[in-house]
Design a protein around this nucleic acid. Sequence first.
DNA 1: TATTGTTATACTCTATAACTATA
DNA 2: TATAGTTATAGAGTATAACAATA
Lengths: 167, 167
Amino acid sequence: MAAQSQFAELARQLSAIGAVKRDLARVLPAHCPAGSAAVLTLLDRHGEMRMSRLAELLAVDMSVTSRHVAQVAERGWIDRAPDPCDKRSRILRLNPAGRALLEELSERYVQTLAGALDDWSDDEVGQLNTMLARLRSSFGDCRARAPHHFEHDTAAPAMPVTPATPA
Amino acid sequence: MAAQSQFAELARQLSAIGAVKRDLARVLPAHCPAGSAAVLTLLDRHGEMRMSRLAELLAVDMSVTSRHVAQVAERGWIDRAPDPCDKRSRILRLNPAGRALLEELSERYVQTLAGALDDWSDDEVGQLNTMLARLRSSFGDCRARAPHHFEHDTAAPAMPVTPATPA
DNA sequence: TATTGTTATACTCTATAACTATA
DNA sequence: TATAGTTATAGAGTATAACAATA
C-alpha cells in the first residue's frame, strides 16, 4: 500500500492532467467535439453495439451517451440499425464517413503526441499506457478490462483505424 | 521515439481517464466544486500569489481563474490583500477556513484513492505520479516543473496540508 | 499603449428526473 | 413491472471578446 503523500500527489496530478486533455482536444476539427470523437473511437475499437453498452464504455450516464450518439448520427458518421432482438434498441455502427473521420482524428492525435513526447521511448509511453489502464481498472472501471462478451458484440470491427493494443 | 500505436493508445487512455477524475470529484463536499478545490490546493502548495500566476498554474484562461477565485473568496476560504506593487492586482492567500477545508478534501481524496488502489505499491504510485508529471511537462505545462520564482512567491506556505512531493 | 483582472456570452460535458416504447 | 432509450433542465468548466483600472 502506498503512502498517503503519494495518493495526495496523485490527486493533484489527476487534477492537473486536464490541461493535457484540453491541449489534445484543441487539435480536433471544429465540427468534431471530444464527445463525438470518443464515440467514434469506441465503435471502431469494440465494433457495433447498443446504447447501453456504449454508455458503459464511455462511463457516463446513458442520457449523455444518447446526446453524443445523436450528434454523430446527425453528422452522418454512424448508422443506427434496428435491433432484431429488441425493438427498443438500435445497433450503432461506424460507417465509412465515420471511419474516414476517425482516420483523420487519429492522425492528428498521433502527430500532436509525437511532437510533444518526442523524447519518450516506446517503452516509456507503453508503461504510461499500462499504468493508466490499471488506474482505470482499479477504479472499478470495466472499460479498462477486456470487453465483455455482449449479445451484440459479435461483429468485430473489420479493421480498426487504430491498431489494436491491449486495451 | 515511440510507435504510432502507442500514441494512439495514449490518446484513448487520456480520453478515458476522465471517468477516474469524475469518480474522484464525486467525493468532494457538495459546497466545494472541483474548480474551488484546485484553487485551494495550488494556494496551499505554492503559497500566496496573484491571479495571473494562479491562472498559469491552473492552465486555464484568466477569466476562468477569476470566476473560481471569486467563488472561493465568497465562501470565505481565501483572503485577497491589496498588492502594494500593483494596484491592479490582489494577493490571494489561503486563510484558516480554507486550510481546514483543504485538510478535509485531502483526507477524502487520500481515503478514496487508498481504497481503490489498495493493491498498488508505494513505488508504483510514485512511478505513475512521475510519469504524469513528465507528461504535463512534455506538453509545455509549466505547472509540472519547479515553481518559477515570482515577485509574490516569497511567502512560502507555512505548512502545506499535503506533504511536499517533487511536484 | 500595454497589462491585470472582471464580466458577458456561448459552448461542451455531465447528471437527475420525467417520459415513451417495448420487454 | 422492469428495461432501453430520449428529452428537459440544471450545473460545472472552459474560451473569446469587450470592458475597467492601472502601469
